[in-house]
Design a protein around this nucleic acid. Structure first.
Lengths: 160, 160
DNA sequence: TTATAATGTTAGTGTTGTCTAACATTGTTA
DNA sequence: TAACAATGTTAGACAACACTAACATTATAA
């Protein structure tokens, strides 16, 4: 019913992501991953368990419940989309792209996420492996200059 | 010294934005603008005043102090950049673009904001009033199809 | 197998930011 | 000017979320 807080979403996503690599997720893993103390994890996990989103036996492993998986996947999908945009298109470093994606993955609405996906799709379905304009943009970032000649040429031919 | 919370930044930005139109900013204006109760505004303003970011006489107007203006402008600039990206480039509606910009304007780091600005600059300094690829993208959003012909033409000419 | 290290839990604290309700001030109008 | 409406303030409650410190359990190694 009532929406999860960003913090709780973070926990769910973390459980999913850690689980992709480690098979078993422990309180300690979550604490490390999220940069909080184990006691904070305990409180969060307890709360999520009460909502039926995770299961957790005392001193045992933390697992996503059915509903928890759904939510975690949603958020993780958003993360990946944002990462793609920030890294592949905007050309930001992996580190920055990943960090920034984390920060806004909870926040953006469905419409925006869909549009961003469209944008990525638009770029990726280009007949060439990378659209010319995107190469030009990356050139622009590096040098601060537009590769004007190529741009104008393409443009003028196109008008005809 | 210690960074402001998002909430506090929201208050500063709100004071700036309201001040652009109304010349005098009152507690009530802030409450309405931010969708909170006047008592919440009172608490926030008091805290900001203690940090020397705003000035506020009892039952009087709220004004940004020197340092407050600097911060407020920074955030507002981010907001405008994000809005531009979301609306002008991604083609999201004014309402959505504005709302989403609000949500992430505090969050994104300097690198990302700069890169986004670069991207906007790249688009705006295009010799044509709008780059072909962007028109194509907007077409793609509307129809779900790429205007392949135009795209390929431009591309093939360009290789030469 | 027992001592110790690693890990997990619980209780209690502090901060932030919202709220309601009661009260204070200011402005407006009859 | 007196009454009322609009606005602002204060006090107190509550929720979320992190922390520390003390205690409990589990795993490891001497």
């Amino acid at each position: 019913m009532n929406a999860l807080t960003e913090s709780k979403e973070d926990y769910l996503e973390a459980i999913l992501v850690i689980g992709l690599e480690k098979k078993w997720v422990r309180v300690r893993d979550l604490a490390k991953y999220l940069g909080v103390k184990p006691s904070s994890v305990a409180a969060a996990v307890k709360s999520l368990a009460e909502k039926g989103l995770v299961s957790h036996e005392k001193y045992g492993y933390v697992e996503l419940a059915k509903d928890g998986v759904v939510i975690a996947r949603q958020i993780y999908t958003c993360h990946k989309t944002l990462y793609k945009f920030l890294h592949d298109l905007l050309g930001l470093s992996k580190t920055v792209a990943s960090r920034e994606a984390c920060k806004i993955e909870h926040t953006l609405g469905a419409k925006t996420m869909k549009r961003l996906l469209k944008f990525i799709e638009f770029v990726e379905t280009c007949p060439e492996k990378e659209p010319l304009w995107l190469s030009n943009f990356h050139y622009f970032i590096k040098t601060g200059e537009r590769p004007e000649v190529r741009c104008r040429e393409a443009r003028s031919k196109c008008k005809a």
